[in-house]
């Protein structure tokens, strides 16, 4: 483990601990008054919250870095290219069209939707589509997924389905349980492992497909591995925490300059930085703002959107000399 990885891991763990220990005075008072309630808050509410923040933030950073490496484009990320909206659509259809709002069913729906969105993207990329075409196709798939999600909600038996899901779509880790952790973590970790196993291939791919092939990298298999891994990780994460945007987009850019621009080497630090960033964002949403709870997706978008704009402007400067 490099020094960068170690320090990022330490930061993520520190922020996760802060998440567990927020409001220490209040918790201590509650412990004396009602140890049972304090225990439930710590073990059944804050522990899953911190674990999910680490796991989901990590998977978003990791898959974002992998997609940017695979497509060799800095604008690629799960929330831009469709797997996130695909996952939301899958989970909504399972919960509101088929009426199974169980955690496992929604996670399976999320993974299915995410796979479908990425599968469609891969299908379009056959025959060597340019990355610009792929990005545009991803944006279109994303828009289609969003529209279909709203359609599924409008057609749901309950007239308040849209209202029910609105907050979930904005992303939140509040009031999750250990069951959510138990259901989401296995596919999420398997997905992350699949993506991580492609790190050498991604480094080779950065030199071009032909060079990668001559170095013994099976590009088609590498692509499949990263797509399936991303679908598993993002699908499970979205089904539990809703759509959390911009982490997958922003984090790889923060990390890449520190690893010499190698996409494969950027994977692990992106995962750790993503975990730290989502933990930090989840601490921010718990700051009381005039008595209202902020939503996680709102906070990550508030950080991510200006960064995205800056990225676009800087890219233009590079393109237009």
């Amino acid at each position: 483990m490099t020094r960068l990885n170690l320090s990022l891991a330490a930061l993520a763990l520190l922020l996760a601990t802060a998440s567990l220990c927020s409001d220490p005075a209040g918790m201590l008072a509650l412990w004396q008054r009602s140890p049972e309630a304090a225990r439930a808050i710590l073990i059944e509410l804050r522990l899953p919250r911190a674990l999910l923040a680490l796991a989901i933030g990590g998977s978003l950073g990791l898959t974002g870095a992998a997609m940017q490496g695979l497509l060799r484009n800095p604008l690629a990320s799960p929330d831009v290219l469709g797997p996130s909206t695909g996952a939301a659509l899958g989970a909504v259809i399972v919960a509101y069209t088929f009426g199974i709002a169980g955690t496992l069913a929604m996670a399976l729906g999320g993974i299915g939707g995410s796979l479908a969105a990425l599968g469609l993207l891969l299908l379009l990329s056959r025959g060597g589509a340019s990355t610009a075409t792929l990005l545009l196709a991803g944006v279109a798939i994303s828009a289609l997924g969003g529209a279909l999600t709203n359609l599924a909600l409008s057609l749901a038996p309950s007239p308040y389905a849209l209202y029910d899901v609105l907050f979930w779509l904005l992303g939140s880790l509040a009031d999750r349980s250990l069951l959510h952790v138990a259901v989401a973590l296995p596919p999420l970790l398997i997905g992350c492992a699949l993506v991580l196993s492609g790190r050498r291939g991604l480094d080779a791919l950065a030199l071009g497909e032909d060079v990668a092939a001559s170095l013994g990298v099976d590009v088609a298999r590498l692509r499949l591995r990263i797509v399936v891994g991303t679908a598993l990780a993002v699908g499970a994460g979205v089904a539990v925490a809703g759509s959390i945007g911009f982490i997958g987009l922003v984090v790889p850019h923060l990390v890449r300059p520190r690893v010499g621009g190698r996409p494969g080497a950027a994977l692990m630090p992106s995962a750790l930085a993503g975990a730290a960033l989502l933990c930090a964002a989840d601490l921010v949403v718990r700051l009381p703002v005039a008595g209202h709870d902020l939503k996680l997706g709102v906070v990550t978008a508030l950080i991510g959107a200006p960064f995205f704009l800056w990225l676009i402007v800087r890219q233009r400067e590079v393109i237009e000399p």
């Binding site: 919960a95 509101y96 009426g99 709002a101 169980g102 309950s158 389905a161 029910d164 899901v165 979930w168």
Partner: peptide, 9 residues
Amino acid sequence: SQASLGQSW
């Protein structure tokens, strides 16, 4: 009786 995130809560 209708499945929803609110009911799961």
